[in-house]
Structure formats: structure tokens, C-alpha cells
């Protein structure tokens, strides 16, 4: 079937290790790991890159992404990345955090890292639940959304409203680049990759704090088929968390 005249047009990126991930079938982490690996490969900064893994399902990103990695306590990845970046300013430092990490226990760290305009890149994966511990309600859980700790649905009268992290951080003067993207279909995935590339380029040019929020699916904890979960991003997540560029300073615009 594979003719000799055929050439490879897509293969696994070099810095994504050839192992089987622990993620559930249809989990968006695999897609986002791949996008990060592709961007780092294309920018040619593999040897300078240091990642900071957070707590949650994505803690094992250090088993899949072939860079130097540190593992931060729950929510403290931006603080750890700050230290690494200040000590090694010529390295590319990024954190890979979920919403159960960044928006809840790590809210203080992310706000102050953004306010200081630390020259780091944050990959923020928002799937609206705590995935690793079994799908409990997170700060980003949608109103009326059923989770294992809100079985009747999130009642905003008693449980509060979800936090729109990108909009909140965009009000600060520190950040250089804050956008929200999704991985619900190939078109949005390609746009997400472009945003991740811009975020890393902003850091390489020393422009300051960059964050890409990515709306992702957690089919197991949402109790959906993988394909339905991607539809759910479009039908339920995007209306509450609109995609867009929330803060792009002129120096970042000039990079594109």
C-alpha cells in the first residue's frame, strides 16, 4: 500500500518521546503535548527548554516531553518557573498546568507571576474539572454542570461562579500575551499551535509573561464519548469562555 514514491507529510515530533501515554482515550492533553513538542522542535530550542510540571493528570508531562523538567507543588508552577527563569534567563521556561491546579490552589501564583510580567510561558489546559482525582468540581466548572462533587449540577447560588482566568489576567499591566484557544477540531487545533508558537516567541524576545488558555476535553469525567466531548467544547465551553486574544502588546503583534 505504501508506495516508494510516497513521502512523509506528518510524523511524531522528535521531542515527544515514543511512549504510550497514561491519558484516557480521547483526552486533549495528548493533542496539546504534541503541539508544544512541535513548536519547540520548529523553534529549535530543545536544549534550552526547561518545563515545569504541575499537579494533576499533566504531572506526567515530564515522561512524554523530552526536555529538562522540574515538578512543582500543587499550583506553584509559576513560582518555580520564576526562580528557574531568573537564574537561567537564556533558557526557555514554560509551565504546563490544568485548571484544577492553576485556577484554584495556584490562583495566587499565576496572578502575581502575570502581574510581575515574568518572562515565562504558561500553557493552561482548561477542561472544567479536576481530572486526576476523579472529576470533582473545579473553579472553572460551568454553571449547572454535573461533576462527582456537584451531582445536582453546579448551583452558582451556593458554589459561586466560574473564573474566566484569561479575562482576569488581561486586566493586569504585566502580561505581554494572553489568549484563549480550543482543541475541538483540526481548525482550532491549528490556531492553538500558532498561539503556542507566538507565546514562546514572545518569551524568546524577552517581552514578558505569555499564557495560552486551551479549552480541552475530559471525556471520561464528562461521561461522554470522545467525539461528543469535542462537540461539548463547542456547544457549552466556548459560549462561557469565548475564544480570543485578550491581551497582545504591540511588541508581540510585531512578531507575527
Amino acid at each position: 500500500m505504501l508506495a516508494e514514491t510516497m513521502t512523509v507529510v506528518y510524523e511524531r515530533p522528535e521531542t515527544l518521546l515514543p511512549v504510550v501515554s497514561h491519558y484516557c482515550p480521547g483526552c486533549s492533553h495528548g493533542i496539546i503535548h504534541r503541539l508544544v513538542a512541535e513548536v519547540i522542535d520548529e523553534l529549535g530550542v530543545r536544549e534550552q527548554t526547561i518545563g515545569v510540571a504541575s499537579v494533576g493528570c499533566s504531572v506526567f508531562s515530564y515522561n512524554y516531553l523530552d526536555y529538562d523538567f522540574a515538578q512543582a507543588p500543587h499550583g506553584r508552577a509559576p513560582a518555580m518557573a520564576t526562580g528557574i527563569k531568573r537564574y537561567r534567563p537564556n533558557h526557555v521556561v514554560f509551565t504546563y498546568q490544568g485548571d484544577g491546579d492553576l485556577a484554584s490552589i495556584g490562583a495566587a501564583e499565576i496572578i502575581h507571576a502575570a502581574a510581575r510580567g515574568e518572562n515565562i510561558t504558561v500553557i493552561f489546559v482548561n477542561n472544567a474539572v479536576f481530572g486526576m482525582t476523579g472529576g470533582q468540581m473545579a473553579p472553572t466548572t460551568l454553571p449547572h454542570m454535573k461533576t462527582t462533587s456537584s451531582p445536582q449540577g453546579r448551583d452558582v447560588a451556593t458554589m459561586g461562579f466560574p473564573i474566566r482566568v484569561s479575562e482576569m489576567l488581561a486586566t493586569l499591566d504585566g502580561p505581554a500575551y494572553i489568549v484563549r484557544r480550543a482543541v475541538s477540531d483540526p481548525a482550532t487545533i491549528n490556531r492553538t499551535k500558532k498561539a503556542i508558537r507566538t507565546a514562546f516567541q514572545a518569551q524568546l524576545h524577552g517581552l514578558g509573561f505569555s499564557m495560552v488558555e486551551i479549552l480541552a476535553a475530559c471525556p471520561i469525567n464528562w461521561d461522554m464519548q470522545p467525539e461528543d466531548a469535542l462537540q461539548h467544547i463547542k456547544n457549552a465551553m466556548i459560549p462561557y469562555y469565548p475564544l480570543g486574544d485578550y491581551k497582545v502588546i504591540d511588541a508581540v503583534k510585531a512578531l507575527a
Binding site: 500500500m1 505504501l2 508506495a3 514514491t5 510516497m6 513521502t7 512523509v8 507529510v9 506528518y10 510524523e11 511524531r12 515530533p13 515527544l16 504510550v20 501515554s21 491519558y23 482515550p25 480521547g26 483526552c27 486533549s28 492533553h29 495528548g30 493533542i31 504534541r34 477540531d185 483540526p186 487545533i189 491549528n190 470522545p226
Partner: peptide
């Protein structure tokens, strides 16, 4: 399952695959 050779190497499957299990080839 492509007995008639209908695959065009359009990259949609490799883009959506969460486990990066797909390598795509195209006729030069």
C-alpha cells in the same frame, strides 16, 4: 480500510489524534 486508495493524506486524522499514533504519507 482503503482498498480503493481513496486516502488523500489530508492530515485531519493526524491532527485530531490525541495519541499521535498516525503517520501520514503523500504521493510526491
Amino acid at each position: 480500510v482503503d482498498p480503493d486508495g481513496q486516502c488523500t493524506g489530508c492530515l485531519l486524522c493526524s491532527t485530531i489524534c490525541p495519541d499521535v499514533a498516525i503517520t501520514v504519507y503523500r504521493e510526491a
